[in-house]
Design a protein around this nucleic acid. Structure first.
Lengths: 339, 339
DNA sequence: CTGAAAGCGCTTACAG
DNA sequence: CTGAAAGCGCTTACAG
């Protein structure tokens, strides 16, 4: 149905090899032949087919980004970095969204084995080390983002440290009952952030009060939603002895938490995690993840590995940077509009 | 490097045809042969290669969703619908993000011509009808989402009608100076919503006052951002004769606009457009787009076209549904916390 | 139930 | 500069 290289060759009265050379920008083609081929190809709407090229070249010029959820600021920011890192590079990027309701390792395995792409960026997919070891055997160029395995290059952020610093900041600010809003307890970032929260309290001789750890019931997107934060804050506000500060698992949840406080006409100082775009407007103090830079670095590592296979595995761990705004301080808010 | 069908055939002492049959679930294989092949394939980690299969079958079992921006609620909701519509179907979905800074028609053309996918879902890509006509010649199964062309199946929402109804609601509520917050003037939805706003005013014998149409300066994502809404509201609040109601181009901008009003300790009734997840929590009155349903219907149309080519082009236009919450009424807000 | 063979649409040494 | 030919890893009538 579609027009092939044979059609062009016939019309242009050259061999398919010549047509192929023209499209591969091989200099060994006479100007005359080149122009004729190009003209006819244009007229017939010819373009080489990716599948056939991939098979013949054994290179697909494709990179696949594997992600569990698209609808989240973290991912879109990372993706921006990835895309900017791919400008001027002869690779296409496509995104594959694994369904979290299904068997995740199985889906990743499938993607890796069918060999559509030359390289893979795997984002926020948490798997047992055993699985990574298995994938290592495939000898594919893979870079992990927001996840660590000794088997592959990785770019991540130290969530534990970020949570630790956020909590410690609240401690040093002399808050006494520091609550935490968490998310789905099996999500890796949620686990790490709780851990950092706990450690900071312990290291500062505070008692970890489990009743001060809240979560909403909405576990869509692992609980990284406004609704979850809203629900969590509602629960928090119902406690007898109200916390006087709160470390929130993510900015998106903080957004919901703030709304809940507004509705209740109250305010508790709050620190988020991520620094999504809206946080600056909101005046939300947060632990900034360098999402864009993470994406950019990850694609650089991958391209590097594509060019020179066999180099050593490298890991980059960013430290979240504390961005202090108004939400973490009670004073500013008393002067303001209640927000 | 990777293990091929030949390796399995050799080890299993059968022909490659038999191996192929096993993986294609062809019943005409003896139990004995099937088990042997499966066992060896598993041991050697074999999986058919997508490129080779695609070439041999002339079917790729792949659907590509083409989108200009990922980072937007509209798209992620649509995608949810698409994915749910693909459960139990033997197609993979991959997402291709065209870069809006580059030549968009060129990128779409490239994707279509290289033939990676069997069918395409093109989301929120606005192109001149001439281009669509050209693409029609490729005879590919394509469904348009959030865009209309007579050449292809489409699923969209009547933005003009939505904006009209929102504006008329404010008129009927007896507001006198009804402002509008718009976005990038070349974005199709922004154009349509302004048009609906204008028509509603005219049809109700109101004068269209161009100075009441505001936009922020942040044109990232075509101005569909919190920041843009925030900036627009700041401008609005600086006008001498303050508007007493506002129709806002999108919920995400409304979010920023509300924040701006909070910061200024003032409130103007507001109607948004989209009904994103946070809107319910915010109490934002809005024109709901059935994003999930749009995605689901679109993939159904595409699958249908894949199964029975040549059927007539069909267009579905949803009407936005008005969801009335507290933000469109001044009364409720005066009793509340200033939000 | 099984295998030999042709074919999918390209690329790429190789020989000229 | 050009073409004939082999090969990429599969699928699928066809014949048995």
């Amino acid at each position: 149905m579609a027009v092939t290289i044979y059609d062009i060759a016939r019309e242009a009265e050259v061999s398919i090899a010549t047509v192929s050379r023209v499209f591969n920008k091989n200099p060994n083609v006479s100007v005359k032949a080149r122009e004729k081929v190009l003209k006819i190809a244009k007229a017939m709407g010819y373009h080489p087919q990716a599948m056939a090229q991939g098979l013949a070249r054994k290179k697909t010029k494709l990179i696949t980004a594997i992600v569990p959820v698209l609808s989240n600021y973290f991912f879109t920011e990372v993706l921006d970095g990835i895309q900017d890192g791919m400008i001027d590079v002869d690779y296409d990027l496509n995104i594959y969204n694994v369904r979290t309701t299904d068997d995740i390792p199985g889906q990743v395995d499938y993607l890796l084995k069918r060999g559509m792409a030359e390289g893979y960026l795997i984002i926020s997919v948490h798997l047992p080390e055993k699985k990574w070891k298995q994938f290592r055997n495939y000898q594919l160029p893979i870079v992990l983002i927001d996840e660590y395995s000794s088997e592959f290059d990785s770019v991540s952020v130290d969530s534990i440290e970020g949570a630790y610093n956020a909590t410690e900041y609240l401690i040093k600010s002399d808050y006494q009952r520091i609550a935490m809003i968490t998310a789905y307890h099996e999500a890796k970032p949620a686990q790490d952030r709780i851990l950092g929260y706990r450690r900071a309290l312990e290291d500062n001789s505070r008692i970890v009060d489990e009743t001060l750890i809240f979560s909403g019931d909405d576990m869509d997107r692992d609980g990284f939603t406004e609704r979850n934060g809203y629900e969590a804050m509602l629960k928090l506000l119902k406690t007898d002895l109200l916390p006087d500060a709160c470390f929130c698992n993510s900015d998106i949840q903080a957004l919901g938490a703030i709304k809940a406080m507004q509705d209740a006409n109250t305010f508790i100082p709050l620190i988020g995690f991520d620094d999504i775009r809206f946080s600056e407007l909101l005046g939300l103090t947060t632990m900034k993840q360098p999402m864009y830079d993470m994406g950019k670095l990850a694609i650089e590592k991958l391209l590097c590995r594509l060019n020179t296979p066999g180099s050593d595995v490298s890991h980059t761990v960013f430290s979240p940077e504390m961005i202090i705004r108004s939400s973490s301080s009670i004073d500013i808010h008393q002067e303001e509009t209640g927000m």
